[in-house]
Nucleic acid binder design. Structure first.
Ligand SMILES: [Zn+2]
Ligand SMILES: [Zn+2]
Ligand SMILES: [Zn+2]
Ligand SMILES: [Zn+2]
Lengths: 157, 157
DNA sequence: ATAAACCTTAGAGCCTACTCCAAGGTCAAG
DNA sequence: CTTGACCTTGGAGTAGGCTCTAAGGTTTAT
């Protein structure tokens, strides 16, 4: 039996978070004291850990709701249903990774092209690339050099 | 000179988006017709393309605001400032990628362990793993087999 | 002249997951 | 019997980027 703050400390979340989960139907305390304090059982704690583990693999709270209701009614669901949810989430995660890898590549080539020095940004190839995308990013030389405008493939070679 | 819908079509965004950008100080039309219609110039269109390119490498609108004001006042900024923004964003993107790769690995090992078949989820190792994390995920055999409980390293070997 | 297609505004709504606040009730220690 | 730590509620705020609505004005083509 835990009060809200105890369970929160135990699982390293805030009491506010537990109230939030309750409001959204994820986790309700099994009972209340006479004065209205929430009282959580070990089963409630286990449910909270289920939620936190599912969060840790990337599920949203509404997906976790679904997983929780499947978990409470396993005999009416098949492995295919559960695996389907995991595979769908996996596909979403992979799509997001692909997008971010694209960002990473572009940012890296912008970064590589810029000298990063203290001179005026008037010659900055990052700004230039954003102003008019040429699919090639002009590389700034080490400064002190006279010429500052060699071209280079966006991939950074 | 473009009306809002024309510029929107030209750049494949919605007119609402342009109004939104205006409200947030990113892009204001250079003038208005007598009847109050927004009128965008080629310079405005160029600014919009700057915004879209910056979005395409992962910057948020408030970061783009900053980039735009630097771009309009280049002589008072250094390459270091611009590169700093790019490198910061790069670090954020990489951190997010790392998190998602972690999700990916976990989801993949959950998926691999589950038979995905039509039988009751009562034996599902995904649910089992979420119920009580053991750092190992039980692998379900191909069904039809008698035994369904070999253990396996989370990495999938 | 009229209908379709366009434009205007202010403001609300959506999504995710909290996080914080105010105003007040409860409980154990000293 | 007071202090301080804890708890209660409802509701607002945050970030990010739109998206939509209502109620009306303008332009263009037929
Ligand atoms: Zn430079
Ligand atoms: Zn530069
Ligand atoms: Zn199975
Ligand atoms: Zn399964």
């Amino acid at each position: 039996m835990y009060r809200i703050g105890e369970l929160a400390d135990l699982c390293e979340v805030k009491a506010d978070t537990l109230r939030f989960y309750e409001k959204h139907g994820l986790l309700s305390p099994s009972s209340r004291t006479d004065s209205g304090y929430r009282v959580y059982t070990d089963a409630d704690a286990a449910r909270l850990r289920f939620i936190l583990r599912a969060k840790a693999v990337g599920f949203t709270l509404s997906e976790i709701s679904e997983l929780l209701s499947i978990d409470l009614d396993k005999s009416n669901w098949a492995c295919a249903d559960v695996k389907g949810m995991v595979d769908l989430k996996l596909a979403q995660v992979q799509a997001k990774i692909a997008e971010l890898l694209h960002f990473q590549t572009s940012l890296q080539s912008l970064s590589d092209a810029c000298c990063g020095g203290p001179r005026s940004a008037e010659h900055c190839s990052i700004l230039e690339a954003l102003e008019s995308s040429t699919e090639r990013v002009r590389v700034e030389h080490d400064h002190g050099a006279t010429d500052c405008t060699t071209t280079l493939d966006k991939s950074g070679n």
